[in-house]
Every structure is written in C-alpha cells, then in structure tokens.
Design a protein around this nucleic acid. Structure first.
Lengths: 230, 230
DNA sequence: CATTTATGATAGTATTGCTATTATATTTGC
DNA sequence: GCAAATATAATAGCAATACTATCATAAATG
C-alpha cells in the first residue's frame, strides 16, 4: 500500500513549475483557467497576458508559478498522465486475468474522457481535449532531450511501461510491447481528432466506439492473444 | 524513377501559396532553405526574417510567396504527401498480388527516408525529419476546419484512401482500413521520433528495422491476412 | 505587531509577424 | 532596343508576444 501510494499520487515533477500551483488559490486558479483558455483559443494563441486578464490577476504573477507557457503545458500533460496511471491502477485492481486487465487498460487509455469532478480545479474533459490537440507540442521540440533529462516525460514513460508489462505477461515473446502501447495511445488521440476534423482519415461504425474497438482488436491480434468473452 | 521525376513537378494545392515557389529561382531558394532552417532550428524558432538573412534576400520578398510560416509548412507537408503518393504509385506498379502491394506500401510509408536527389531544391531526408517532427503542427490548430475546407489536406487524405483500398481488396469486411493506415503513418513517425529522443517509448530489435516490421506485422494480423513469404 | 512572502500595477526590452513605401533590378511585349 | 510591366531589395514601422525589473501593497506567519 505504501508502494502503491508513492507511485500513484498525482505528483508532477517539481521542475516544470517555479512555485507549486497546488499550493495556493492563485496557483489553482491559474491551472483551472489555463485549461479553459487553451481549450478555447488553442495553445498558439494562449498567452499569460490573456490568462491574467481572465483571472483578474497579473501576467507577472503567473510568471512566478511557470517559467513559460510551454512549462505550463508540460505541467498539464504531466498531471494528465499521472491521473491516467491512477485511473488504470485502480481500474485494474483485483482483476486476475491479464487479458481482462489489458482490455480494460486499453479502454481506459482510448475512451472519450468525461468530466469526473474528483479534482476541484481540473476539468478532465477539457484537459483530455488539450492533451489530444496540444500534447505533441510539449515533446516535438528542439528542447526534447534536455526536457527528457530533467524527467519531464517520466510519467508518460512509466504509464507506457506499466501497460506494456501486461502485454508481456500475456505473451512474453512479443517483441514490440512499448511500440504497441505508445502507438495505441497516440493513435487513439489522433483518431479522436480526425473523427472531429478530418473524417476521411478514420472510420465511423454505427453502435460502437470504433476507436476503442479498433485499438482492442488490433492489440490482441498483434500479440497473438484472445480477447476475453463478454 | 529518377528520370521520371525530373519530367514533372508534384502538384500542391495552389491556395497554400500566394505565388508558386516553383516558378522562380527565388521561390525555389525559399523552399530549399526553409527546409534546412526548419530542420536546424525547429518550426517555432523559424522566422521569415531569419530565412531572408540565410538566403541573402528579404523578409518582404518571402511574404510575396507565402502568407505565413504556417502556409509554408502546409506547402512542405503537402509536397511530401504528393511525393509519397508518387513513390507508392510507381513502387506498386505491375505487382498483381494485393498482399505484396500492401506490404510494399507499408514499407514505403514507414521506412527511413534517404536523400533521393530527384528534386534539385528539395532534400527528402530533411523534409521527412520535418514531417515527423512538425507536421502535426500543420493540422493540430484552431484553423483546421477552415484549412480542410480549402483542401489543404487532400493529398494526405488521398494517400490514406489509396492504401486503405488495398486493405479492402484483401479483406473487404475489415471495418477500420482508414484508421489502420492513418494510425500506421502517424505511428511510424512517432516511433522514429521516440527512437531518437524517448527510447523508453519504443522497442529496438537487433538486425531489423523494428518500425517497419512492427507496422507490417500489426497490419496483416489486424486485417486477418497472411504476409507474403520472402 | 514586525517581518517575511505573495500579489498587483506599471513600465520596459527584444523579438515576432506582419504591412507599407519607395527604389532598383529584371523580364516581356512590341 | 526600349517602354512598360513585374519582381525583388531596402528600409521603416506597428501591434503583439514573451518575457524581466521595479516598486508598492496586501496577506500570512511567527
């Protein structure tokens, strides 16, 4: 339990912020409103000046929490992956069959996220939209190696590692577990975006969430495993 | 193939540029140097002012070809997808077996691109790196629907459609051909980036190009088809 | 109640993403 | 071969962005 608690607290690498936004009302307001604002105007048009106006606070004050809007995006995505790992850890608890655990993990990773309400200042529904549309901008940068050294992506890597291990439990000889899981996560995000904006790049199927079904089907076949029967 | 390419230029939607850069020496220089500069400094740090300095020309002159650096990126990615479709069209010519055609298409879509030299002013090797690292920034924007209406992504959609059709030839009942192909293309790009920068998100296998192998293996299994024997 | 600490208000700087203007080449059409 | 059209270069300028600095004031803490 101790082990569990330490790996699954929603801790975000403390180097992505200057001052922990969880530590004050202003900090939480910054996080809460940044999610709304990025969701509304997109990451490129998002600025700390606009955010300051929005929360009736001050640009300079926001800079005391985050060095730049990129660091704030890193904070949001890190928080998201922490949250996702927590969801998966609890969602899979007490399920003995690895096939069932894998199936559930895929569902949790690829499903549409709804507003959860567990966290006062974080709207998971909007955060998921941001992760889908903007998170690649947090690592597809010239600073990726530097950022990686500082551990900014460790939450994501840990999550991929955890789910990959379920694959290896089912089929220890499968050669590409990490590729499979990271492709599945990024792929599902892309497909949700395409379904909204570029539908010719995806396939809609009546009466099912095609993205979840596609992900489960492709994964189980790739690792030569049989999907649990409903 | 080399000779063939020199006899025609690839078609790019004429709304992404103001003046066709193929139509003048300056235009070609803009395209050629923008590829070098974006590859060097990344898309965020890339500006028309810097590009002007680089080619000993003028910021204002570049604006006569491209409305903004986003449009230039759209031009580069559109060109890339056009080029990829030609590669595939010629690469699959006269292969009767759809399984063999699919396998070859997957290879062409997911392999590492090397400098080809067919086009004077375009370095395909660097352009591929740009498409991997920056192309999502061309559609993950608030303007995506507007841009899509103007046909800026039609080359990409056409390419996905073409390869999806091979899947349907092999297995007409497979429900997710477009999802499969767009996931495979984006996925392979991500995996190449991860292999370089975030290796814990991928899997290296000695003696093979793991990304091509993973893509082929997963695709053929997903559509319940048998891979051609070497 | 004194003092540290957090926030607010304002100003300032370098860079970006353009547009406008005017001058000078270069191409072309007759 | 020359005038007229067109393309490019040089320079300037402007509003917005991405910060940093300074100083004043409010709130929390000891």
């Amino acid at each position: 339990m101790q082990d569990l608690f330490t790996s699954f607290s929603l801790q975000v690498n403390n180097r992505v912020y200057i001052k922990n936004p969880e530590s004050s009302a202003l900090g939480r307001k910054i996080v809460e409103s940044s999610i709304n604002l990025i969701d509304n105007v997109g990451f490129e048009a998002f600025t700390f000046r606009k955010l300051g106006l929005e929360i009736h606070s001050n640009e300079a004050s926001i800079y005391r929490y985050f060095e730049s809007k990129y660091k704030l995006l890193l904070y949001l995505t890190s928080w998201y992956w922490s949250w996702m790992e927590y969801r998966i850890a609890f969602g899979l608890a007490n399920i003995p069959s690895p096939e069932e655990r894998l199936e559930k993990a895929i569902k949790l990773l690829t499903e549409n996220i709804e507003l959860d309400g567990s966290f006062e200042h974080i709207n998971e529904y909007k955060l998921n939209k941001i992760v889908i549309a903007e998170s690649s901008k947090s690592y597809m940068t010239k600073e990726v190696d530097q950022n990686n050294k500082e551990g900014f992506f460790s939450g994501y890597k840990q999550l991929v590692g955890r789910v990959s291990n379920i694959i290896l439990e089912i089929n220890p000889t499968y050669k590409y577990p990490h590729m499979m899981i990271s492709t599945l996560i990024e792929g599902a995000h892309h497909q949700r975006f395409f379904a909204q904006h570029l539908p010719r790049l995806t396939d809609a199927v009546n009466g099912e969430d095609a993205i979840i079904e596609f992900s489960k089907d492709a994964t189980f076949k790739a690792i030569n495993a049989v999907r649990p029967i409903k």
